[in-house]
Design a protein around this nucleic acid. Structure first.
Lengths: 347, 347
DNA sequence: TTGAAAGCGCTAACAC
DNA sequence: GTGTTAGCGCTTTCAA
């Protein structure tokens, strides 16, 4: 029924192995037979069977993508399509395919990964997140299975290949920016503290404050869901504080918008009453009113580099070290100086 | 090295075929041996090899996802993550996996699909779009390869399984809504006319106008990219018309926002000067100012049902007919009546 | 209820 | 340069 390598071999009067060699363009085969065999493949409409090849080579050229459980990783966020585009492009350039994890809960996803890996479905795995003591990461590490983490790992940072921004620095810069504008009561809003990204940004925020001699206040640090709703919740909590902050560092644009909208309803204006800087830069500026000053973390590049790194690992066997994707601060209109004089900024 | 079915068989003093039957829970195997074999599998840490099984069964339990070339299918749109979530959930429930197409151009994607299909990598395919005389759809149809189209097909509608909204009706209702508000100069903005979805919405729009005795104007129909930028471009063109419309039907929320923002810059306010209804309802209402009145097309359900349909097809062999996912109009604040009296609406 | 053996379609020693 | 042959790990007749 389906045309196999044998059919081609027969018609070309060669051995199946010769056809196989033609497929992989083995230099030991003469040009003459290559041409002849290729013509016959064309004639017969032959297409190599991936599964058979994968079984024989013990390699599928498929990369498994592991998304965090959907409760954490909001599909309502543009981060996801952006990183996927980067991953796609990196994979496509090297003729790799992407297999998605589909599980909702952490347990479901873990089971899937085990199946993918032990079942030989994927040659490598990309984790689209990084969190403290992650079950799946540990599993992959224990088996020495090739994987790359998008986000700096919490443990074993020396031996795990990862792709990330310098979130500490980025957060420090964002906070410094607010400090330079004269703010001292600065809040920090992010999602789950178990994500390394969140920890790093919190640390950068704290460093900047300490350096400026500002005393940290526990009340000013909030953790909510990574979404518009999370931002709204945070805003409400903020206003219940005795001395609310005059500025905020928010870990995502969508969250920041939630904050802005919620505060607005309660009569607090941005940037007149409160200044906000955020992360990700996934929104076109017109989408938010005011346009958010935000750290562009180059999400596409994060995905692209992750694909490149895992492929390099698979092909050369060596483990590329951590890649740091540059970020840059984009100044728009969500912050206001509360100093008397206008100051020159270095960002 | 890796534990195979043979290792298990040996330890359990049974034939490999018996182990295979235990894996697939064949009723002919006695409970006693099943338990024994399962214990040994556990002990040895055995996991079935997917590739080998796929080769023997000529089925992978993988569904290929075909995205339209990225130029058309903006990754900058929340449509994508939403539909993927639906697809994931539908696939997961039946233990199917999803393989993504990664190509950028139509040719790249076509090549990928051929590889997936002829290479035996996927059991079925889901097209995440539907357009006129699509190369890939024709290929799949010619080979009688199982696939489902998200979006009503243009040709062979009787024989192709698809999942879609009733876009004609939805668009008709949206347009009627504007007509009832007293508008007569109503424009229509959508993306590529080669998408069936666009054609349907255009048709619904035209029907509503005709029924109301309003003469169609070519100038009022614009086709731009499916994104915020596309909306901005459309807005500019609209204002160059001698008699600009007082209301618009826009095929996507993000495009609609582009229109709103661009018009605002030019001094045209929504809804005071122009009324807008859009499609998709992917934005939380606060995100746009004003909140857009929009048709919620239940993107998640579209994906979920598509997964269910292709799986049904694969498992039972029969071809489920087209599934229509219900839509509903969500009234917010982007439209204004231009009649003297306020009228009662039926939506 | 179980086993033996022949494949699924391809690759990769090892020969010649 | 090319052919022979033995797998890759599993399923599935056919026999017993």
């Amino acid at each position: 029924m389906t045309i196999t390598i044998k059919d081609v071999a027969q018609r070309a009067n060669v051995a199946p192995s010769t056809v196989s060699r033609v497929i992989s363009n083995d230099p030991r085969i003469s040009e003459k037979t290559k041409v002849r065999v290729r013509n016959i493949m064309q004639m017969l409409g032959y297409h190599p069977n991936f599964i058979a090849r994968s079984l024989a080579k013990r390699s599928t050229r498929i990369i498994g993508l592991v998304l965090p459980s959907s409760s954490n990783f909001s599909y309502q966020n543009l981060f996801f399509p952006a990183i996927l585009q980067g991953l796609s492009e990196g994979a496509q350039e090297n003729h790799y395919s992407l297999l998605l994890s589909t599980g909702k809960t952490e347990d479901e996803i873990y089971e899937e990964v085990v199946k993918m890996v032990q079942g030989g479905m994927v040659d490598g795995v990309i984790l689209l997140y990084s969190r403290i003591s992650d079950h799946i990461l540990n599993y992959l590490r224990d088996r020495a299975f090739p994987f790359v983490s998008i986000g700096k790992p919490y443990d074993f940072i020396e031996e795990i290949t990862y792709v990330d921004n310098d979130n500490i620095l980025a957060s420090e810069q964002a906070t410094d920016y607010l400090i330079q504008l004269g703010h001292e009561k600065i809040g920090f809003i992010a999602d789950d503290i178990n994500f390394v990204k969140t920890l790093d940004r919190l640390f950068g925020y704290e460093c900047a404050l300490k350096r400026a001699g500002i005393v940290l206040s526990k009340e000013y640090t909030l953790h909510e869901e990574f979404s518009h709703e999370g931002g709204q919740a945070a805003a409400k909590k903020l206003l219940s504080i005795a001395e609310p902050p005059t500025a905020l560092v928010v870990s995502d644009d969508f969250m920041a918008l939630g904050v802005v909208h919620s505060l607005r309803e309660m009569g607090v204006r941005t940037p007149e009453d409160i200044s906000i800087v955020s992360f990700n830069q996934v929104l076109f500026p017109e989408l938010s009113l005011p346009a958010l000053s935000s750290v562009d973390i180059n999400i596409f590049d994060l995905g692209y580099q992750a694909a490149k790194s895992i492929i390099q690992k698979l092909q050369t066997g060596d483990a590329p070290a951590g890649s740091i994707i540059p970020h840059h601060f984009v100044e728009r209109h969500s912050c206001k100086s509360i100093k008397q004089a206008v100051i020159a900024l270095t960002y």
